[in-house]
Simulated assay, not measured.
Amino acid sequence: MHKVSSILFSGMMFLSVAACGNGTADTGASSAPAAKTAPQKEHKVLVAYYSYSGNTQAIAKQIAQLTGGDLFEIQTVQTYPASYNDLIDQAKKEINAGYKPELKNKVTDISKYDVVFIGSPNWWGTFAPAVGSFIAQTDLKGKTVAPFFTHGGGGMQHCESDMRGQLAGSTVAKGITFSGRSSGAPQEALEKWVNSVIK
Score class of each variant (00 low, 15 high):
residue 140 L to I: 10
residue 108 T to F: 01
residue 28 G to R: 12
residue 18 A to C: 06
residue 157 Q to L: 06
residue 188 E to K: 14
residue 6 S to D: 13
residue 134 F to G: 00
residue 99 Y to H: 14
residue 169 G to P: 09
residue 156 M to A: 10
residue 92 K to I: 11
residue 170 S to V: 10
residue 54 G to M: 11
residue 35 A to E: 08
residue 139 D to E: 11
residue 15 L to F: 11
residue 116 V to S: 11
residue 41 K to C: 05
residue 39 P to S: 12
residue 144 T to Y: 09
residue 13 M to H: 12
residue 44 K to C: 00
residue 40 Q to G: 03
residue 54 G to L: 09
residue 182 S to D: 07
residue 184 G to T: 07
residue 133 S to T: 00
residue 151 H to S: 08
residue 136 A to E: 15
residue 32 A to H: 13
residue 81 P to C: 08
residue 116 V to W: 07
residue 82 A to D: 15
residue 102 E to C: 00
residue 1 M to I: 03
residue 45 V to S: 03
residue 188 E to W: 02
residue 177 T to N: 13
residue 171 T to R: 11
residue 181 R to I: 10
residue 2 H to E: 10
residue 71 L to G: 04
residue 172 V to E: 05
residue 31 S to F: 02
residue 150 T to I: 08
residue 143 K to F: 13
residue 45 V to T: 12
residue 103 L to Y: 00
residue 71 L to Q: 06
residue 73 E to N: 12
residue 90 Q to N: 08
residue 37 T to G: 10
residue 120 S to E: 07
residue 18 A to V: 11
residue 50 Y to G: 01
residue 103 L to A: 00
residue 20 C to T: 14
residue 61 K to F: 02
residue 114 D to C: 07
residue 68 G to P: 07
residue 13 M to V: 10
residue 146 A to T: 08
residue 165 G to I: 06
residue 193 W to M: 06
residue 88 I to R: 11
residue 13 M to C: 04
residue 44 K to E: 01
residue 156 M to R: 05
residue 134 F to T: 00
residue 46 L to A: 07
residue 25 A to Y: 09
residue 144 T to W: 09
residue 190 L to D: 03
residue 84 Y to Q: 08
residue 133 S to V: 00
residue 179 S to P: 01
residue 106 K to R: 14
residue 30 S to D: 03
residue 152 G to R: 08
residue 38 A to N: 03
residue 10 S to M: 07
residue 25 A to P: 12
residue 38 A to Y: 04
residue 146 A to F: 11
residue 157 Q to R: 14
residue 177 T to C: 14
residue 138 T to A: 04
residue 57 Q to P: 02
residue 37 T to L: 09
residue 85 N to M: 14
residue 137 Q to M: 09
residue 145 V to P: 05
residue 196 S to M: 10
residue 4 V to M: 10
residue 113 Y to E: 01
residue 160 E to Y: 05
residue 132 G to Q: 01
residue 162 D to K: 07
residue 4 V to L: 13
residue 82 A to P: 02
residue 88 I to A: 06
residue 106 K to E: 00
residue 97 A to P: 09
residue 107 V to S: 05
residue 156 M to G: 05
residue 97 A to S: 15
residue 99 Y to K: 13
residue 183 S to I: 01
residue 176 I to D: 04
residue 9 F to T: 15
residue 75 Q to C: 06
residue 115 V to T: 15
residue 188 E to H: 03
residue 168 A to C: 04
residue 120 S to R: 06
residue 162 D to C: 00
residue 47 V to G: 04
residue 70 D to S: 09
residue 121 P to W: 03
residue 192 K to V: 07
residue 112 K to Y: 05
residue 19 A to V: 01
residue 12 M to N: 05
residue 124 W to N: 10
residue 35 A to C: 07
